[in-house]
Structure formats: C-alpha cells, structure tokens
Amino acid sequence: MTRALQILTGRRFTVEEYVDEFGTKKDGNGNLRVRPTVVCVACRQPMHTVSENIPSTARTWGHNPDPNAWCPLKQSAGERYEILPPIDPNPEAGAAIRSSFFENWEHHWAHTAEIVPMVSIFLFINFIKEADRKKLWENRGMQEWFLPYIFLSMYEIEPPHSATGRKTRPHWVRCRFDARVRTFGDLWIRPQGDWGFIRSEYRVPPRGGVPGPTHLIDTDPVTPDPDFLARVRPYANSFERDKMKSNFPVEIA
C-alpha cells in the first residue's frame, strides 16, 4: 500500500514522507526510534514500512502480522461481495425502493460517476438485473442510498476503452466497504452510515488479466453520502438513457 493513515491527525503518509517527518527506524545510536502508529485506511489495523532503507526498491506499507485481522484489501485479486436472496424479505418495502430507484436512476448514476468516473452503463444494467434476480430490494433494513455503493463494490472496473476515457481514468478501480462490512448483510444491521467505503486504483497488468496486490497504486477513503439523492444533479447522456430504456422499458418511459 502506498499510503497509511495516522488516526490522531487524519494525515496520510507515504513511507518517504513518514521517514522525512519522524526519522528512520533507528536513531544515531542504533536504538529503535519511537514513531507514531499508522494504520490501514480500510481495516484500521497497524502497519509497518516495507523496504524503508532500500532506495532501489519500492517503499510501501504492509499490515502487521495478525492471523485474526481481516482486511478487504488483503483479499487477493479482489474477492467480490455477493448478493444473496433475503432470508426475511419485505416485498412491499422492496417494491417501493425499486420504484424510487428507477425514478432516481440518473441521480444514482451521477453519484456513481462522482466516485468512479467513466464507469460502464452495461455494468450498471447488469447490477440492476442481478438485484432483481436476487431480490436485493427486499432486504429488511435496505435503504435506497446504499445502492451506488453496493453496485461499485461488486465489479472489477476496467479503464475505459476509448482514448478519451483513458485520459480521464487510465487505471483499474476496485471499490470495497471497510472492515466493518464483510457481507452486504452487515449493511442492513448497522446504524445508518456506520461504515466506510474505499476506492483503490491499480495499474493495468502488462500481460492482461485482473490486477492483483502488486499492481495497487493507492487507496482513498470515500465518505458515504446518505443525502446524495437531494444533492447531485441527475445526469446521463443519450447513449446511456437509450440503453436503460431498452433494458427496462416498463420502468423508464
């Protein structure tokens, strides 16, 4: 990981910045130096420097060894969340959420683009169809504002294929909830907004395929916004509207 978080100050440090400010591991007498603890932005577990004293090697942060600690960023190749059918469905509430979602779908789409620019409308359509198959809407405790975050966490988001799009976002993106949410079911049982969201960028693997931990560039926290429906300006271009209408002709006039 490129940067780690110092909780007390909210500052994030690369290894180079951390050493410049707090010194090397050992002082001039060879004694271990007391330096501030830094943690992973996703799981809040302590981290340590890797290759701090080897200038020719990439200097990064690593999790301290702890077999009981779980971090969404340590799941190799990006283990995905999965929509499961609700155990105790609420069809009436689900129908209302689904109806409201389609009324507001351009708000959801605009907020999605705030978090990950140039995401594919086809992924969005696939997500809605999967939500219908698994009855995501009917989970008790489900809230409409969760939907963009659930959507983005489910997919490997490749760089756009067009040259113009790649100028906007040249890297892969992988979104995850923080360590408080291991499955989507954790969303329904937590107080509103009592979770975090993270956005990680990855270099494109030189030989193709899905990027792994070695391709990680950096991870940034994304503050969940329960009020985005009232804040964002709805937006979709004509191509995106046409694709949504052709896939959901009953819901979108």
Rank of each mutant, 00 (worst) to 15 (best):
V116P: 11
S238P: 00
E130A: 13
V181P: 02
N237M: 09
G196W: 01
G185I: 12
Y149V: 10
Q143G: 00
F228C: 03
R190T: 14
K134Q: 09
R199M: 12
I150M: 15
S76Y: 07
L147M: 06
G185F: 09
H48M: 05
L84N: 08
K129Y: 09
P249C: 02
H215A: 15
H215I: 09
D178F: 00
T2I: 04
D194K: 13
A179M: 01
S120Y: 10
K167Y: 03
R182Y: 03
P159W: 01
I125S: 00
R98D: 05
L147Y: 06
I189W: 05
F151H: 09
V15E: 12
C40S: 02
I252C: 02
R174H: 01
L84G: 01
M142T: 06
I252L: 10
G23C: 07
Y155R: 02
I115A: 10
L229N: 10
P226E: 14
E17R: 11
L147E: 02
N68G: 10
S200M: 11
D132K: 10
V173N: 08
T219F: 05
N247R: 08
N31R: 07
L84Y: 06
A96N: 05
T168F: 09
D88A: 01
V34H: 12
G209Y: 08
H215R: 14
W137G: 11
W61Y: 00
F122K: 04
E201L: 09
P148L: 13
A236F: 14
R169K: 06
D220I: 12
L8M: 13
R199Y: 12
D27S: 04
V41I: 04
Q192H: 07
G209H: 07
C71Q: 01
P85A: 02
E106Y: 04
A253L: 02
W145K: 11
R59S: 13
T112V: 11
D132C: 09
E156R: 02
F248G: 04
E144H: 02
E130F: 11
H161T: 09
L229T: 07
Y81L: 10
T112Q: 07
M142D: 05
F184E: 08
H215M: 14
A96P: 01
E82H: 13
G209M: 10
T168L: 15
